[in-house]
Design a binder for these strands. Structure first.
Lengths: 240, 240
DNA sequence: TGACTTTTTGACGATCCGTCAAAAAATAAC
DNA sequence: GTTATTTTTTGACGGATCGTCAAAAAGTCA
């Protein structure tokens, strides 16, 4: 790779860094191509050589963090323990991601807003979908193993897919709670991640995934997952 | 009220109708003030007498449907039955709203996007928050009654607020599933509302809200709620 | 060094938001 | 019914941004 090509690669990362931070601090509406170009020290035309459009840049930001989420989930898949402890490791991965990439939810939601897609390059949409699918696969695999092992007794009409969607919804809900905090005066609900943990526990109990949360202490397994799997990240995220 | 004032009122409704449909069909990016004005047959300046800005118009759309959601939830509060059946009526209200106002989720999320708020009039933000809070109050009240009646045994650290947040997250997740459908090949997960029902059942079972879903048939109570409370709307939504 | 290729630039056209002074319509006064 | 006053409507305009493109600059290679 020539020095010039390397420079271009580096610049793309810097563009994404700036866009990501701008998105977090000033929102989508204030994500201006001129401003981003200035911040990185290039002209607007150069930015458009990296990204087809403003929305494509937004998508690239989402794609980059989605890939990191998939990587965290895959690391969680290697956790050793009971089937439900392993799902707990996946939840821990979600928590780490939640804390480390606060911009992502907003970015992904914007990208997924149905009518934005046409302006985004197909490769990026595919990449985003692939990363999300990868996360589901990890969770689905663990749940399927739990069924095989007899830890997770599915009733008629229930499926591991349904379970994973439910967990995913609770996880996404943690992002929403940042907005809802103002409505809820309940002190037990003031931290998004704590509520996520508690509700995920209730949800898996509802499926009868053994051992149930009152039969086993999942806190220690979670702590082990955080340190063993995500030491540096969990520390940076303030989860340790 | 003078005829002129009545005309202005009517026009505002028509502006909201047009904006709502445009938002659904073409998305936020293509929500153009000129186009809306043309569609209603007024000039752009007139639109700006109803709404301070484009975002304020978007907020007004969200406020209008949020008020209808609160109304549906309050109707659900009058349902007669066991505590958990009554919460089922609230879920039915959420389903009716989900089917009748497909635009709402998108609109509300945009409004809540942190950095949009400054451009929206304070009254509308308050109105939106009030309607959302009203929905939570209805659900919280029912859950609290269930605790008092001994149907809902909360464990240490659990609260009715946590429960309502969880249900709310599962409900919001139904909106997300329209996007996720493409990733999930699981046929048990292909309809958002069915998954919502099943997961809400699992979730409340996890709390031990009696009678549990395998001790009682909640399908008939749901059907009764749909017909008794939301007859016309449920029919229009295709839920009956 | 010089010819050729790739990359960068920023001025430009097009689009849209929100404003505002002038025009039109409605209302009040006589 | 007519005129004066207030309210409402209008659409042209300024300002801002997106995405383009021909020219300039930088890089590559013989």
């Amino acid at each position: 790779m020539s020095p010039k090509q390397q420079e271009i690669r580096d610049r793309e990362e810097r563009l994404l860094d700036v866009a990501q931070q701008m998105l977090l601090e000033r929102g989508y509406e204030d994500l201006r191509m001129d401003r981003i170009a200035d911040a990185v020290g290039v002209s607007k035309g150069t930015v458009y050589q990296h990204f087809h459009s403003r929305d494509d840049l937004l998508a690239a930001v989402a794609v980059r963090s989605a890939a990191k989420r998939a990587a965290l989930f895959e690391r969680a898949a290697s956790f050793e323990g009971s089937s439900r402890e392993r799902m707990g490791a996946v939840e821990a991965a979600a928590e780490v991601f939640f804390a480390l990439f606060p911009h992502h939810e907003h970015a992904e939601r914007l990208v997924r807003a149905a009518h934005l897609s046409p302006k985004i390059s197909a490769e990026r949409v595919e990449a985003l979908e692939g990363s999300t699918q990868r996360c589901f696969e990890v969770a689905t695999q663990i749940a399927a193993e739990a069924v095989t092992a007899g830890d997770l007794p599915l009733r008629a009409g229930q499926s591991v897919g349904q379970l994973c969607v439910g967990l995913w919804n609770l996880y996404q809900g943690a992002f929403l709670m940042r907005d809802l905090e103002k409505f809820m005066s309940d002190p037990a609900v003031d931290d998004a991640l704590g509520t996520l943990q508690r509700n995920a526990r209730v949800f898996l109990d509802g499926f009868g995934w053994r051992p149930l949360s009152n039969e086993h202490d999942y806190t220690t397994a979670r702590a082990r997952a955080l340190t063993e799997l995500f030491g540096a990240e969990a520390l940076a995220a303030g989860l340790l």
